[in-house]
Simulated scan of single mutants.
Amino acid sequence: MKTIVEQIVNREIEAVIVYESKDVIAFADHDPINFGHILICPTYPYESYIALPEQVLLEIQSVARDLYTRIENAFEPDGISFIQNNGQFNELSHYHLHIFPRFCGDKFGWESSDLGVQSIEKLRQSLARL
């Protein structure tokens, strides 16, 4: 079964495409955080960040940099966010990088677990396996 991104690449699903090459496509998120919310994806269905070939990753980063400037100029946001999920949190089963304008009061937020603020020692211990 094709991913949603593959269906967009093959023009089986309509999308507002803002960039496309042989390896990378960028299009408007159909359920945006704010207008200007774009997904940047490889055209091949790599599932995770680590699976991306180096040249595809570099192109995605180049497109993200260009779109950052275009979003900034078009929407004049208070900030710009990037989000990328892997594993069970990648609901498309196809790598995608979200880039979207942020505005004070837009109600988009980060909800942390109940860990709370940690001491430097606890953080050091938690990362010792790296």
Rank of each mutant, 00 (worst) to 15 (best):
V18S: 03
E20G: 01
L58N: 10
F27E: 00
N85Q: 10
I33Y: 15
N34G: 02
L58D: 14
D78A: 14
T3Y: 07
M1I: 10
G79C: 07
V63S: 01
S93W: 07
Y46I: 11
L39D: 01
F103M: 05
A74R: 13
L130K: 15
G36L: 07
L115V: 15
E76K: 15
S113E: 05
A51P: 00
T43W: 02
Y44E: 01
E20C: 06
G79A: 14
Q7G: 06
D23L: 08
E111V: 11
G109K: 13
H30C: 08
E91N: 13
L115K: 15
S119Q: 04
N34A: 09
S62W: 13
Q84K: 04
H37Q: 05
Q118Y: 07
S112C: 09
Q84E: 11
E121N: 10
I80Y: 02
K22V: 13
D66P: 00
D106W: 11
L39M: 08
D23K: 10
R129H: 11
I71R: 01
H94E: 14
D23M: 04
L123T: 06
L58E: 14
N10W: 07
A128R: 01
M1K: 09
F75G: 03
I99C: 00
H94R: 10
D66N: 14
Y95T: 05
V5C: 05
E72S: 12
L39R: 06
P53G: 14
N34P: 02
H96F: 07
I40V: 12
D23Y: 10
R124H: 09
F35R: 12
N10T: 13
D106I: 08
L123C: 02
P42C: 14
N90F: 07
T43N: 06
G87D: 14
H96I: 05
N73D: 08
C41R: 10
W110C: 02
I60E: 03
E72P: 00
T69N: 08
S48Y: 14
I80A: 02
K22N: 09
P101G: 04
N34R: 01
V5T: 12
H98C: 01
F35H: 11
T69L: 13
Q88Y: 05
Q118K: 15
N73V: 13
R11K: 15
M1E: 06
I4G: 04
D31I: 11
D31M: 10
Y19V: 03
R129T: 08
G105W: 12
V63D: 01
F75C: 04
S93A: 04
R102W: 06
V16A: 05
V16N: 03
F100T: 10
L115A: 11
L97K: 01
F100C: 09
L52P: 00
K122M: 05
G105F: 12
I13D: 03
A74V: 09
E111P: 00
Q61G: 07
R70L: 15
C41G: 08
I17H: 02
L39I: 15
F103Y: 13
S119H: 04
N73H: 11
H98Q: 05
A28K: 11
F35Y: 09
L52H: 07
T69G: 02
V63W: 02
L97A: 02
E12G: 12
Q125H: 10
I8Q: 01
T69P: 00
F82I: 10
E20K: 14
K2H: 13
I120A: 12
F108D: 04
F108E: 07
E6W: 05
I38Y: 00
T3H: 07
W110F: 12
Q84D: 08
V18R: 13
Y95R: 08
C41P: 00
R124E: 03
I40C: 05
E14S: 11
